[in-house]
């Protein structure tokens, strides 16, 4: 067992965890933040994507103890004061989802993509979301949603 101190969504958490606890299980089971989904549990699908120290990572392939001292952001931190984050807004407007299971991961991966590249082309979006699988949409509206999110973040309305 190890005591971890992790800042999640701006709040400091101190918990004793088994060394083998995955970050995603720590977020979901210990902190009750169930917006981060477990899809494949084999680092393929990206549903568990969260932001650790500024970078998008698959939280099913990181130990909670590896996040010792880290700043973690999850989907729960995106909407502020009842207002959707521009990426969430864009996924809503463009219907960038059907069942919604992959959406938290898509949104966190999109946030990482737009941080590196605020105005991506379709091709750059497709490559930028390579680590996220959606089994419903065929990705067309997801790509649209990311383009719209980029516009919204750059201040266009």
């Amino acid at each position: 067992m190890t005591t971890v101190k992790i800042n999640v969504n701006g709040k400091r958490h101190v918990h004793e965890v088994e060394d083998r606890t995955l970050l995603v299980n720590f977020l979901r089971d210990t902190l009750g933040l169930t917006g981060t989904h477990i899809g494949c549990d084999t680092s393929q699908c990206g549903a568990c994507t969260v932001n650790v120290n500024g970078r998008a990572v698959k939280s099913c392939t990181m130990l909670a103890v590896q996040a010792q001292g880290a700043k973690v952001l999850t989907i729960e931190a995106m909407a502020r004061k009842g207002k959707l984050h521009p990426i969430q807004q864009a996924f809503t407007e463009c219907h960038g989802l059907q069942c919604g299971f992959c959406t938290p991961g898509m949104i966190m991966a999109t946030a990482g993509l737009l941080e590196d590249n605020p105005d991506p082309s379709d091709d750059e979006i497709i490559h930028g979301l390579e680590g996220n699988l959606c089994r419903c949409t065929g990705y067309v509206n997801i790509v649209r949603a990311v383009k719209r999110a980029a516009e919204l973040q750059r201040g266009a309305q």
Binding site: S43, A56, V57, K58, A109, L113, G131
Partner: peptide, 9 residues
């Protein structure tokens, strides 16, 4: 290599 999340780690 891999995908963006994998490249970050």
């Amino acid at each position: 290599i891999g995908d963006p999340q994998v490249r970050n780690r």
